[in-house]
Design a protein around this nucleic acid. Structure first.
Lengths: 320, 320
DNA sequence: AAAAGCCATGTTAGCAGTAACATCTTTTAT
DNA sequence: ATAAAAGATGTTACTGCTAACATGGCTTTT
């Protein structure tokens, strides 16, 4: 029996006699045969692997959200984290590994699509966040809409002095939320501010930003009855700092945050926050990626925008 | 010029004339040459990659803690998450990928070392948590000691009725903390309990366990002035549930938790918790892994136990 | 000056698969 | 019954690299 017949069995080639196939499978079973990925890669130029690339994922990552849809589709999934400095190298490694597709999760990355396409060595690529122009597929949430929901909620509760605490505006999400906050207040004839812009963001930094943001805003005088806070992690720091000043939430200060991190509903008070369906976002992203892999030439890039909604809990109330 | 000379340049072989080397490098630069990993793997049987395998990492993972030391050592790092069901398959994939070493992070995995060795296809392996017997390298914290620190702190504050809330005891850490809690109370002539054993654990489950645990314990009557809680995430749920019952922390109930998650010090009140240096644990683990890769035959397995310490904050006070 | 040794480079083979084409066998159509 | 088509299997070549051995030029030793 030739190795070619064995290869045909491995690849489910139709023209193999059933009993030959059975015999090959039986012998493979007995010998504990495993196909050599390196050799397969060498000829086919791919590895049945999807690589997830994250940028500065010092915030804790929900890994299963990424890996589960990939495995379901029959690929093997690997995650590689990198910094901005070695982003190109990480793409090179993915190419060397001959991955079939790349899911990029780098909400803080501001880079023209053209450049990303160049970095990706022609490997199908989807950004699960944002893209600058429209030469890539991405799935994002309408941050402006989300932010409007948040501010509108506060306005409807009667707040007229609404502050904003954010991390670094290098994050596109943070920038968009901030912009919409400003616009929304202006449209409603309200004064903008006070505003605190904190540090660029890993988890610990976020909490620190929130904490220091409150100290800073209060140092400038207590001119707000509500705060829009860029995300739940930052809000944790905000809650702490307010407690240290003897200010109650929501009676003295209402807070609305973003993300609906699982922690949000367990904080005291449970956070009113913008809920994003990240799970759906991830699944949709992989769906687009698989389409692209199946037929790279016919594939047209999508820019998909998802709508968030407001989860009202107990960190907001009407102004006293 | 033969391809072999090129290969020698790539591998820093000493016997290449400096100007030949320079010429090769220059041409490689100009042509944008990149060595084919598949072909290299095919001959050398390895890929300069370290694979980090995590089990059910639905708790959010600090990815950089894993990847940074690996990259510093000149390897490329990939992370693969898996469930217990496809653990073997994940190891197979790592073998197929011809990784140089595997770091396993699966604190909930109870499996004889012998079996893990079998699964690992002879690839150098380090467990960053625990191992059952001593045929593998692992780096763990002395959980018994940690738990003793926690209980002793409460006893010294005058508490005589100390409850315990934990997730599933399938996690070795949870089991050890529970065991030490029981022993410590018995040694001090105190009654054990009340105890609540919650669900097996991802992040959300942990918080839920803590929340429901408090409800359950209070339903049985308020027979405790302090609680040892299995980790910070669970404590978040505990704090919430106590607040819903109008119980103050620490005045009515003192709480000591484990992990010193960055969030712990930003909660209200900031948590008294056992501090583990996870960063050091990870770095040490990789150090052992690299030693093992360099000289697999001379390598002797280590079982390294690290000591935790107590970070006293504001969730504990002397009994009122 | 010849023998020996080292240095730089070249040649060949093999790693484990798949693609493409070739061959032989069986079935189907006329 | 015979040609054509289809089915099953085999042969050869190629993927891009490295190990091992081979070669030829130059230096050192005696």
């Amino acid at each position: 029996m030739s190795h070619q017949t064995v290869s045909r069995v491995l690849n489910d080639h139709p023209k193999v006699a059933p009993k030959t196939r059975a015999r090959v499978l039986q012998i493979m079973e007995k010998m504990g045969y495993e196909r050599n990925l390196a050799a397969q890669m060498l000829t086919t130029q791919h590895s049945n692997t999807i690589q997830i690339i994250t940028l500065d994922a010092a915030f804790h990552l929900d890994v299963t959200q990424f890996t589960q849809p990939v495995k379901q589709a029959g690929y093997s999934a690997v995650i590689a984290d990198c910094t901005l400095r070695n982003l190109a190298k990480t793409f090179d490694e993915a190419a060397a590994r001959m991955v079939d597709g790349i899911m990029l999760y780098a909400p803080q990355l501001v880079m023209p699509d053209k450049e990303l396409v160049r970095l990706s060595h022609g490997i199908p690529l989807v950004r699960r966040d944002y893209a600058i122009d429209s030469r890539l597929t991405w799935i994002g949430f309408d941050q402006q809409h989300a932010s409007r929901l948040a501010v509108q909620h506060l306005i409807e509760l009667g707040h007229r002095h609404i502050g904003h605490i954010t991390g670094s505006l290098e994050f596109i999400n943070a920038r968009l939320r901030y912009d919409a906050y400003v616009r929304m207040l202006e449209e409603n004839g309200l004064n903008v501010g006070p505003v605190y812009v904190g540090e660029y963001g890993a988890e610990k930094r976020d909490m620190k930003s929130g904490y220091e943001g409150v100290y800073e805003l209060l140092k400038r005088g207590r001119k707000f009855t509500a705060l829009q806070v860029v995300n739940d992690r930052t809000a944790i720091g905000v809650l702490r700092a307010l407690a240290e000043h003897g200010l109650r939430v929501p009676e003295d200060v209402s807070i609305v945050a973003f993300d609906d991190n699982p922690i949000a509903s367990y904080l005291t008070p449970p956070l009113t926050t913008i809920h994003f369906d990240f799970d759906f976002q991830a699944r949709l992203g992989f769906q687009f990626l698989f389409e692209q892999i199946k037929d790279p030439h016919a594939y047209k890039h999508h820019q998909h925008v998802l709508i968030a909604n407001l989860a009202v809990r107990q960190s907001t109330c009407s102004v006293q």
